[in-house]
């Protein structure tokens, strides 16, 4: 199979998922609203004391991002599993692990990228300084793809289960911990005016690691779930 047809299969699949998401755009908005709502609940619960909000802000926004990502994951393979498209995907004449990357990319564009875009607004709500907001956006930009990649493995393992949602959170959230730690630490550190190159490099390295391993694990998991 030539590169050209693989590239076109990748593009067709990516486009397919984007078109499907567009035709169901009301559903995409849900995780985003959830993200905003959760973040807005914290000042209501903790009080509007500015230094305190600044201190908890990075962690709160990142935890909300994890939960929003988790909420959106189920959509990645569920409908394809139910209507049989996933079987067809596994029977493609292209490597499944590469096609899976197309699906994960589409998922990130539809659910991860919007989080990055609204993050500055949430930073303002939690009175983060300007530098910290810039770093927040940067960490989300590097970190949310990791969430989609790791999440894909979890969804692939649980897609055949009727009540996969709760198990999914048990599988995926512990694996999200390193991203959470380094990303929220980067934002807090930036707020204190200390350089954060180390954290960014580490998150970048995790992204590379996830990008190279997660598709393989996802493809293997889908094979198991469909058998």
């Amino acid at each position: 199979m030539s590169d050209l047809s693989l590239r076109s299969a990748f593009a067709v699949l990516l486009k397919r998922d984007l078109v499907l998401a567009y035709r169901r755009r009301a559903e995409i908005a849900n995780p985003l609203l959830f993200f905003i709502l959760i973040t807005a609940l914290f000042p209501l619960g903790l009080g509007s004391n500015k230094p305190m909000l600044q201190a908890v802000g990075p962690g709160v926004i990142w935890v909300a991002a994890l939960l929003a990502a988790l909420l959106s994951l189920d959509g990645m393979f569920r409908s394809d599993f139910e209507d049989g498209s996933l079987e067809q995907l596994m029977l493609s004449s292209h490597p499944v692990s590469l096609l899976v990357v197309a699906k994960i990319s589409a998922h990130w564009l539809v659910t991860g990228l919007p989080l990055v875009v609204v993050a500055p607004l949430l930073g303002v709500l939690l009175s983060l300084p300007g530098d910290a907001i810039a770093v927040l956006v940067l960490t989300l930009l590097l970190g949310t793809p990791i969430l989609s990649l790791i999440g894909a493995v979890g969804v692939a393992l649980t897609v055949g289960l009727r009540r996969g949602g709760i198990i999914l959170s048990l599988l995926v959230l512990p694996l999200y911990v390193p991203v959470l730690i380094f990303a929220s630490d980067a934002v807090s550190t930036a707020a204190a005016g200390i350089p954060i190159t180390a954290q960014l490099y580490i998150i970048g390295a995790m992204l590379v690691l996830a990008l190279s391993l997660a598709p393989l694990a996802t493809a293997a998991s889908l094979r198991v779930s469909l058998s």
Binding site: V153, L157, T158, G160, L161, R163, G164, I167, L170, L171, P174, L175, V177, P178, M206, L213, A217, A220, S221, V224, S225, S227
Partner: peptide, 30 residues
């Protein structure tokens, strides 16, 4: 939890194995 949630035990064991391998890659990171 994953092993006990999947009915077919061979399938369940293979799914749990993948998860264990993913976990082992993550342990040093965590």
């Amino acid at each position: 939890a994953l092993y006990s949630a999947i009915e077919d035990k061979r399938q369940a064991a293979r799914a749990a194995s993948i998860l264990a391998i993913v976990g082992v890659v993550n342990i040093p990171l965590i």
